[in-house]
Design a protein around this nucleic acid. Sequence first.
RNA 1: CCGCCUGUGGCGCAGUUGGAUAACGCAGCAGAUUCCGAUUCUGAAGAACGGGGGUUCAAAUCCCUUCAGGCGGGCCA
Length: 579
Amino acid sequence: MSKTAAIAVKQLEKAVTDAIKKAIENGALPQSEIPQFIIETPADRKNGDLATNAAMVGARAFKMPPFKIAGEIKNNLVLDNTFFTKCEIAGPGFINFFFAPSYYAGVLRDIENEGDSYGRSDFGKGKKVMVEFVSANPTGPMHMGNARGGALGDCLAAVLDASGYDVWREFYVNDAGNQIEKFACSLEARYLQIYKGDEIEFPEDGYQGEDITDLAKLYADENGDSLLKVDSETRKKALVDFALPKNINKMKSDMAKYRINYDKWFMESELHKSGQVQAVVDLLKEKGLTYEKDGALWYKNKEVLTNKLLAEGKSQKYIDNLELKDDVLIRQNGNPTYFTADIAYHKNKFDRGFETLIDVWGADHHGHVMRLKGAMDAIGYDGDSLDVVLMQLVKLMRNGELVRMSKRTGKAIQLGDLLEEVPVDSARFLFNTREANTPVDFDLDLAVTQDNQNPVYYVQYAHARICSIIKSLENDAITARACTDAELMMLRESEELELINHLAAYTDEIISAAKDYDPTRITRYVTQLATLFHKFYNACRVKGENEGLMQARLNLCIAVKTVIKNVLMMFNITCPDKM
RNA sequence: CCGCCUGUGGCGCAGUUGGAUAACGCAGCAGAUUCCGAUUCUGAAGAACGGGGGUUCAAAUCCCUUCAGGCGGGCCA
């Protein structure tokens, strides 16, 4: 909330507390502790601008009906020198408060003073947070799920940043391990097929996408058949060394196009090379959490999680039902599993000083969450400082029909394709209209439309409209100037006040989004802001009113413009002055 | 079988640390618009929150149960 709004809430807390104390002193209420009440914004503005449930939560303590308690509080309430004019008792015992004109003027002043930084707060107190998102496999092109993860992760990071966290964006590149081996075998088969045709069998679990064939062809075009003569290992290495950087660069350029700037692209191979993976294995061994079986090294996941869940108060039956299993750390063939590398990676993150780790994952990985957190606990870190945002699937729709995407057929809709078809503004905004945990049907037709059906367009339009209004007034030699409090207090139409209230809520909205790891509330917020602005402009005249009121309204327009712009800039969405 | 997620007007979706007449958009109906750019606004109609049971002064929100859909339960990631 704006500074003014924050002050208003504090004033109210104090006033209500004082009133209760006073009522106890003069005997209107029985002796008791002051109940824990809250100050909230009622859903319906008819119920005041702020309200408290103090009377209701006090019902038990005071052994009186809420309505009566509310009456006593009201009788002893002093609102002099606050941002409030009056209060009313309503419903089951709510006490509703109404803002004074000075409040609204204060909000507009806050926005004017803070400008670009209006909305930012120090809620996060500079705490170091890492948001790791997308982290697609470099074995093939990125898909729609990555598109959603990108928009969600980047905007989540933005919201945390605006809330005063020290945010770091990271992409984990799985450039090692099993899937790279699969990648290598796939490339090798495609390469050999160029020269030997179909007598070369393609590995059953290989990557079937056209991109693999293309990469093999590209290698052949540039380097010929020299790899026919060398042994398989050498051949695969040459192909991977050729193809992998190409894929990684493509991911980097796609992300850049998508306006996502990572602080770091972290290579999994570094973890292996530097011995960090081995170190984690050794650490787990030391803790007695491993054993050997069937030639593999296992991690006692079941034991760790059972203890953790029991400590959390889960029943033995619940735990039994989960059928927890142990996990392999080192395969029979001597290679560490993805899980092992992941433990090492998250340990590395903590060791770099991040206090909170946020991972954005596809929901199909949810089975991995608990065991990774458990493993972090097991090696002496706080698993609860690792938060995983799970993201449901994206379905691509065109003309109301599902657009199939399948990596296998090679005809998949890729992130690159999407960005060619859909404006980045649209993609970033639309993917942030649905919470991570709900499946999305991404409407391609909607995403490319340039009309009010497309929310990003609607919001941008509101901003452009304000710019246009300002310009039009300038043509009439009217320029915005700072207003006096008295002038700002001339704003008292309901459309004006509602609009200002919404402006005042911006900072809090960002903080809530940060707390919930849910940037999607901000797109809703700004859409609502655009609507409220249109309503205001429809109901109130700017030009032609007396000078003071005109200036006050012009100032209101500018405040709205500031906030819309701040939202769009925060999300890296363009904010055109005219459209 | 077990676990996680989802289920709100014709459609799309908010609201879920319990609270006051369940919010909004779209399509549809009826209107408005002497400041900018009709890519705007207003009004009426439409859901009792998948079903059932329970806790509570108060439940879309919590508990139990049931139905439907998605995902998961690899020496895949």
